[in-house]
Write a protein that binds this DNA or RNA. Structure first.
Lengths: 139, 139
DNA sequence: CTGACTGCAAACGTTTTGCACGGTA
DNA sequence: TACCGTGCAAAACGTTTGCAGTCAG
C-alpha cells in the first residue's frame, strides 16, 4: 500500500485502515461518489457504516485533502485535491475525467468584465465520450 | 404581468397563478433557490405547498424552461434558460451573477485534448464581489 | 493512556409520492 | 368535461448526530 499513512498524517487525520482504503479507492477511480465508495469498502470491511464513510469524507474535504466535484444530475464525486484542472463529463455513461486546460485567458476576461476578485475557476465540459460515441454510431 | 402565460404554453405547461408568480420571481432575482422561492411565494399564496414548488420546478427543469445551477456549498439555484453564459459566485455573501464570456477557445482546447464530443461548457468563477471586498477592507 | 474513530441506531432535513379536491383549457 | 395542478400528509431519501465500545498514536 502506498504512503497513505503520511498523507493522512500531513492533514492531521489518524491513519485507520478504513481511511487508507478509502484513499486508495478514490485514487484508483479518480473520482468516486459516496455510494460506490461505500460499496467497494464493504468488500474489505463488511461491517463498515455509511456514517463512517460520510464522516471521513467530510473531514477530508474540510481540511482540504479531498475536493468535492459537483456533477450535473448526479451525486457529488470526490477526488484527491490536486492542481487546478477542469473536468470532462460524459452525459451518456456518467464518466468523469480530468482535463488540464489553460484558464489564464478566462481569468483575465472575468477580472476585466466584473468587479470580482476571482480566486477559483470551475470548468466542466459536458459531452459524449469516445466509447459512447461509438456505441451510438453502431446503434 | 409579462407574457408568462405564453412562455408556459410554449413548454406545454398550464398557466396557473402559482407558476406565473414563480417565473416572475425567478426572473426578478436572476437565480433563486427553493427555499427563497417558497418564502416569496407565500406572501402571495399563503397556503402554497412546498411540494407544489418542487413539482413545478422539476417539470420546468425537465422540459428545459428552467436550468439548475449548482453552487459550491449551497443549495442549487434555478434560472430561466438562456443563451450560454458563465457565473460569478461570491463566496462571502453567496451572491450569484451571470457573466458572458467567450468560450470558443476553451471549446477548441477541450476538443483537441480529449476525444469527447462536447456539447456544453459550465464555468463558474468563485471569488469575492465588490461589496464584500469593501466590507473586508473597512473591516 | 487519551482522544479520535468506528458502528449502530435514531434523528434530521430535504425531496418525492399518493390522494382527494379544484381549476385550466 | 377531462385532465392537469394544488395542497396536505405520509413516505422515502440522503446525511448527520449521539453514544458506547475500540483503536491509533
Amino acid at each position: 500500500m502506498k504512503d497513505y499513512k503520511s498523507m493522512l498524517k500531513e492533514y492531521n487525520l489518524k491513519a485507520t485502515p478504513q481511511r487508507m482504503y478509502m484513499i486508495s479507492e478514490i485514487e484508483k477511480s479518480g473520482h468516486i461518489d459516496i455510494d460506490n465508495l461505500y460499496e467497494s469498502l464493504q468488500t474489505f470491511f463488511p461491517y463498515i457504516s455509511l456514517a463512517t464513510v460520510y464522516k471521513n469524507i467530510n473531514s477530508m474535504v474540510d481540511n482540504g485533502f479531498l475536493t468535492e466535484v459537483k456533477v450535473p444530475h448526479k451525486k457529488s464525486r470526490y477526488e484527491i485535491t490536486k492542481e487546478s484542472h477542469a473536468h470532462l463529463f460524459c452525459k451518456e455513461c456518467g464518466k468523469l475525467e480530468d482535463i488540464f486546460i489553460n484558464t489564464e485567458a478566462l481569468y483575465n476576461e472575468a477580472m476585466q468584465n466584473s468587479n470580482y476578485q476571482i480566486t477559483d475557476i470551475l470548468v466542466t465540459f459536458e459531452g459524449i465520450c469516445k466509447e459512447c460515441q461509438k456505441l451510438k454510431s453502431e446503434g
